[in-house]
Amino acid sequence: MEEEATKYIWEGAIPLQIKLHESEITSFPPPPPLMILGLRIGYLPLLVPPLKAHFSSTLPPGTDNVWFDYKGLPLKWYIPTGVLFDLLCAEPERPWNLTVHFRGSPGDVLTPCEGEESVKWSYINSLKEAAYVINGNCKNVMNMSQADQYDLWQSLLKGNMEGYLKISSKLKLGPFGEDSLPSEESEIVASSRPSRIPVRLYIRSVGEEIVDIEDAPIIDSWDKISYINRPFEIYKEEGGYVSLKQALKSLLPETFNTNSSQEESSTNVKDPNAPDFEDDNAKLRLVRVQGIEPDMDIPFFWLANCLRNPEFYLHICVFISKQPKLR
C-alpha cells in the first residue's frame, strides 16, 4: 500500500498552460502558450529550458531572470509545483494557466533564482533541515558523496523513483511509526526509528462568508498565507496512532483551540470523516496533501510515510475560515 502511494506521488503531474507575459512579446502574431506537464514533486524553474526554447524568437533583448505568476501573484519558486497548485487553486484548474516572465523579477516578493543550481541547493538545504528534525543532526546528508548527491538530484529531475529510493535509503530518515508488529517488538522498533516528522503547513483564509470552497477569493499577496515549519512528534493514542485531525490541532494551537472540553466534544461529531471542526478561533474548511483531501481520521504517520515530498517534508495545505494569529 505504501509503495503504491509513493509511486502515485512520483507519477503525479499537473497539466500546465504557460503563456509569455504580453510586455515581453516582440513578435506578431504572439506565440501560443506552451502546454506542458509539471511534476507535482518538481519545481517551476526546472521547466525553463523548454519554455525558453518555445519563446526564444520573441523575447526582448536582455538578461534572463525567469519567474512565474498566477493571476498576478508571483510564485515562490522553492515551493513544489504540486503544493502551489493545491494551495492557490481552491477549485482545481486544468490546465493550470500560468504566466512566465523572462525579465524584471519582483525582488521585493521573490528571492532570485539562478536556474537549476538554485533549485538544487534549495532542495539540499530542505533535506538537511528535515534530517535535523528527524535525527537531531544532518550528518548523513552532509556526508553524502558527490556521486550520491548528483544521483539523488538527477532522480528528482527525471522523476526516477527507483533511483531516488536507492540513494535516499542510505540517509536513514524513515519510515515513521510502526503498527504492524506485536506490541513488545513495536516498542523496540519505535525506539530505533524516527519519531519526529518534518511538516510544512500553508494556512489560507477563505473568508467566513464563503459557502462553497470554489468561491474562495483569489490570492493576490503572500501576506494572506501563513507558512509554517513545525515538527510533529509521533505518539500512540490508546487504540491507535494519532490521526490527522489530532495532529493538526497539535501543530496549530493558535488556530485550533485544544482545551479538554473541546477535545471531548469533538468525539460527538456525527460524521467522523468530515473535514470541518469548529472552535473559538477558526473553522477548518479543507485540507489537501498531494492533491488529496484525506480522511481526517487517517493515521498521521501513514501520511508522512506515503505522501511526503522527496526532501522528506510533509506539505499540508489548510483552508480555514479565519486567518490564524501566530505567536
Score class of each variant (00 low, 15 high):
1 M>D: 10
2 E>H: 01
7 K>Y: 05
8 Y>V: 03
9 I>E: 12
13 A>D: 07
18 I>Q: 03
18 I>P: 05
19 K>T: 15
22 E>N: 12
29 P>K: 13
34 L>T: 07
35 M>D: 14
37 L>C: 02
40 R>H: 07
45 P>Y: 04
46 L>K: 11
50 P>C: 05
56 S>Y: 08
57 S>A: 10
57 S>M: 02
65 N>M: 02
69 D>V: 03
71 K>S: 05
73 L>G: 02
75 L>T: 08
77 W>N: 07
78 Y>M: 07
78 Y>C: 06
79 I>F: 06
79 I>E: 04
82 G>T: 06
83 V>F: 06
88 L>F: 04
89 C>R: 12
92 P>I: 02
95 P>D: 11
96 W>C: 04
97 N>E: 15
98 L>A: 09
100 V>C: 07
100 V>K: 06
102 F>Y: 11
109 V>E: 13
120 K>H: 08
120 K>T: 09
133 V>T: 15
136 G>Q: 11
138 C>W: 04
138 C>E: 13
139 K>G: 00
145 S>Y: 04
148 D>G: 06
154 Q>A: 05
163 G>L: 04
164 Y>N: 11
169 S>P: 07
171 L>A: 06
176 F>N: 04
177 G>F: 08
178 E>V: 13
188 I>W: 10
189 V>G: 01
191 S>R: 15
192 S>F: 11
201 L>S: 10
202 Y>A: 04
203 I>E: 13
207 G>W: 06
207 G>V: 09
207 G>C: 03
212 D>V: 04
225 I>H: 04
227 Y>G: 00
231 P>I: 07
235 Y>H: 15
236 K>L: 04
239 G>L: 00
242 V>S: 14
244 L>R: 06
253 P>F: 06
254 E>S: 13
257 N>P: 00
260 S>M: 13
261 S>W: 03
261 S>N: 13
263 E>H: 02
263 E>V: 10
268 N>I: 08
269 V>L: 14
270 K>H: 13
275 P>Y: 03
286 L>C: 14
290 Q>E: 08
292 I>Q: 10
293 E>H: 09
297 D>K: 14
299 P>N: 11
301 F>G: 01
303 L>W: 03
305 N>L: 01
306 C>H: 01
306 C>I: 00
307 L>M: 10
310 P>Y: 04
311 E>D: 15
313 Y>A: 05
313 Y>E: 01
315 H>G: 03
319 F>G: 08
324 P>V: 01
326 L>T: 12
